[in-house]
Computed example of a mutant assay.
Amino acid sequence: MSPTSHASTEALLSQLQGWRESFDDSFAEPRHSDGWGDAWNVLGIRIAGEPFALSLDELAGLLTAQTPAPYPADAPALIGLIGHRGQVLPLYDLRAWLGRGLSSSVRWWAVLRSSPVALAVEDFDGQWRVPPEDRLQQADSHEGVGRWTLRCNGDLRPLIALVPLVERLTATLAVHKNGAAAAVTTA
């Protein structure tokens, strides 16, 4: 290799390393305002035909539903297992999780960012940036639904609070597991 081509290769590698570091650093920096102030990015979904919203900050992805791998467990609302980015995730029926019965047809899977969980949803309506004036705070939260209702594209959509929902699921599974373990030891 000639000294000129070696220098070109070194310069290219240095530039690539700089881009890599810049890309990685961008995730550690706070998001910059682009004139929307503190707008929330939300995903519009439908559950039993009713409009709801999920915070995009709480999601790692939205996938077209396929056939999940069956899993022999009697966990509440568990549909099966899916693969996402090299991980095996339990897939739960969001409609059943919210106490609204089982979904008749699932078209999308929402993968959570904070927990290794995926949620099956019936329909996806769109994605919106919701400015503060389109957020209505509720006095109390309903089962699985947070304290906010959002105005998105003319619809009022309750914002589903995913973190408390996952905490409730985890607690339910722990009780279920402990009950099963107690039944085995007494048998």
Results as ranks from 00 to 15, higher is better:
2 S>T: 13
2 S>D: 12
7 A>R: 10
10 E>W: 05
11 A>N: 06
12 L>A: 13
13 L>V: 09
14 S>I: 10
15 Q>V: 06
15 Q>D: 13
22 S>K: 12
23 F>I: 15
26 S>W: 15
27 F>L: 08
28 A>Y: 00
30 P>T: 09
31 R>E: 13
32 H>W: 14
34 D>H: 13
36 W>F: 14
39 A>P: 02
47 I>N: 01
47 I>A: 01
48 A>Y: 02
49 G>P: 01
50 E>I: 00
51 P>N: 10
53 A>T: 07
55 S>M: 10
57 D>H: 10
57 D>K: 06
58 E>W: 08
58 E>K: 12
63 L>F: 00
64 T>V: 14
65 A>G: 01
65 A>C: 00
65 A>R: 04
66 Q>S: 15
69 A>I: 07
70 P>K: 09
71 Y>Q: 10
73 A>Q: 11
74 D>I: 08
75 A>Y: 10
76 P>A: 15
77 A>Q: 07
78 L>S: 04
78 L>M: 15
79 I>R: 12
81 L>F: 13
82 I>Y: 10
83 G>P: 00
84 H>Y: 12
85 R>I: 05
91 L>H: 09
92 Y>I: 11
92 Y>H: 07
92 Y>M: 06
93 D>R: 03
93 D>F: 05
95 R>W: 08
100 R>E: 06
102 L>D: 08
103 S>E: 02
105 S>D: 08
106 V>L: 10
109 W>L: 04
112 L>V: 04
114 S>M: 07
114 S>V: 10
115 S>G: 02
115 S>D: 09
116 P>D: 12
118 A>T: 08
124 F>G: 00
126 G>T: 03
128 W>P: 03
128 W>K: 06
129 R>A: 15
130 V>R: 10
132 P>D: 14
134 D>Q: 13
134 D>Y: 11
137 Q>H: 09
139 A>L: 07
139 A>S: 13
139 A>P: 09
141 S>Q: 08
143 E>Y: 14
143 E>R: 11
145 V>I: 12
146 G>K: 05
146 G>D: 07
147 R>N: 05
149 T>D: 12
149 T>M: 05
150 L>E: 01
151 R>Q: 09
152 C>Q: 03
152 C>R: 01
156 L>N: 02
158 P>Y: 00
161 A>Y: 04
161 A>W: 07
161 A>Q: 07
162 L>S: 05
162 L>W: 00
162 L>F: 03
164 P>L: 07
167 E>G: 03
168 R>K: 07
173 L>N: 08
173 L>A: 06
176 H>N: 11
177 K>D: 13
177 K>G: 14
178 N>T: 13
180 A>V: 08
183 A>W: 12
183 A>V: 01
185 T>S: 06
185 T>H: 03
186 T>D: 06
187 A>E: 05
187 A>D: 02
